[in-house]
Computed example of a mutant assay.
Amino acid sequence: MPYWLMKSEPDELSIRDLQRLEQTRWDGVRNYQARNFLRSMQAGDLFFFYHSSCPEPGIAGIGRITTPQYPDPTALAPDSHYFDAKASADKNPWSAVDVAFAEAFKRIIPLAQLKSQSALVDLPLVQKGSRLSVMPVSAEHWNAILALR
């Protein structure tokens, strides 16, 4: 089963928000490589929920993909921050998936701690210049991160 890491700013959607909602749409991905990773997801895949652009960035918990990708409706909504004037109902280049809450960690695993782990040196998240909001995680990296919680 593939594993993923997906980033969200906690003031937009946090792991606690997902826990409260139980399930929601993951949308607004506007990077083509991240979008392609999103398109590779299948229902049942697990992902690390990463809090970004906040005082303590890090992995806050685990979510589960509940639907395969579908056209991102925010691209067609003029009042959305993620509106794309070039998108249409027939040709929408952006995708979304539905996600569900699986687990909130007792503490956030900070980015600094992730960077200090020799087992995670190849993890794209800790590599310089890696800013993707959606990325794959190998089974080895998945297990190494789980051991940190």
Rank of each mutant, 00 (worst) to 15 (best):
P2S: 14
P2H: 13
P2Q: 14
P2G: 03
W4Q: 03
L5S: 05
M6C: 10
M6S: 09
S8W: 06
S8F: 02
E9D: 03
E9Q: 06
L13M: 13
S14H: 10
I15C: 09
D17Q: 09
D17K: 08
R20P: 00
T24S: 14
T24L: 05
G28M: 04
A34D: 10
L38N: 04
R39V: 00
Q42I: 00
F48W: 08
S53T: 09
A60S: 13
G63T: 10
R64I: 03
T66P: 03
P68V: 06
D72T: 07
A75W: 01
P78H: 07
H81L: 13
D84N: 04
A87P: 03
A87G: 04
K91E: 14
P93V: 01
P93L: 04
P93N: 05
S95F: 04
V97D: 11
D98Q: 10
D98P: 00
V99L: 03
V99I: 15
A100R: 13
A100G: 15
F105C: 02
K106S: 14
R107I: 00
R107A: 14
I108G: 03
A112V: 11
A112M: 08
L114A: 09
L114S: 09
L114H: 09
K115Y: 02
Q117E: 15
L120R: 06
D122Y: 02
L125S: 05
G129Y: 14
L132T: 02
S133M: 01
M135K: 09
P136M: 06
S138N: 07
E140G: 04
A144S: 15
A147K: 14
R149E: 12
